[in-house]
Simulated scan of single mutants.
Amino acid sequence: MKLSYRVNEYVSCEQFIALLNASGLGERRPVDDKQCIEGMLNNSNLIIAAWHDEQLVGIARSVTDFHYACYLSDLAVHKNYQHLGLGKTLQNLTQQKLGPNCKIILLAAPDANSYYQKLGFTSHPRCWVLERNKRIKE
């Protein structure tokens, strides 16, 4: 199987949604909100995509300053391509694009929590999330 990896090349909204659904990540992403998905893609400043021919089979989508912090917003691998090292490769390629002192930060899906520990990530107890439908209290 010949895979190619592309950095910051165009990924369509439809390809991204199909991958999110095929990876299992679609249940935690706004796949029914095309405007939001388009914004997610258009405002990411580092996207590493894995392709099998012209099918998107993996993605690492990040927002970063390239020097201090990189928020890895989505790491998705199509279920038919999982356990082949694609996720690890996508993360390694992401890290290669960052400065030498830039840390990768992410929120793990519940089923993936132990995966990141095996790769060398450390858990951080002080993560806070304000959901889309909530407002900051006065």
Rank of each mutant, 00 (worst) to 15 (best):
K2L: 13
N21G: 08
W51E: 07
E131Y: 08
Q35N: 12
Q82F: 07
F121N: 02
I17S: 02
V31E: 01
Q117I: 07
N80W: 03
A109L: 14
N43M: 03
F16S: 04
S123L: 11
Y10P: 09
L107T: 11
L19C: 10
E9S: 12
I105S: 01
F121A: 11
M40N: 00
A69R: 05
K34G: 03
R28V: 09
P125A: 14
A49P: 00
S12R: 06
H78M: 05
G58V: 10
Y116K: 05
Q95S: 12
K134V: 15
K118C: 08
H67F: 12
M1A: 08
L98M: 08
S44H: 11
V77E: 04
G120N: 06
K103M: 08
A112F: 01
E9C: 09
G120H: 08
L56Q: 07
L119R: 08
K137C: 13
N113E: 15
Y115G: 03
Y81H: 11
H124T: 11
L90N: 01
L119M: 15
V57Y: 10
A60N: 05
S12K: 10
K2N: 13
L20D: 04
C70D: 12
T89W: 02
P125I: 02
A76G: 01
N8E: 09
N113P: 00
K97H: 13
L20Y: 00
L25G: 15
V129D: 11
P110A: 07
Y10N: 07
P110F: 09
L98S: 03
V7M: 05
K79M: 07
C102Q: 07
N21S: 14
K2C: 05
S114V: 06
L72M: 13
A109M: 10
K97A: 11
N43L: 07
K118S: 12
D32I: 01
L86G: 05
N8Q: 13
H67K: 14
C70K: 01
V7H: 09
L93D: 04
C102H: 07
L106W: 02
L130E: 11
E131S: 13
T94A: 06
G24V: 07
Q82M: 08
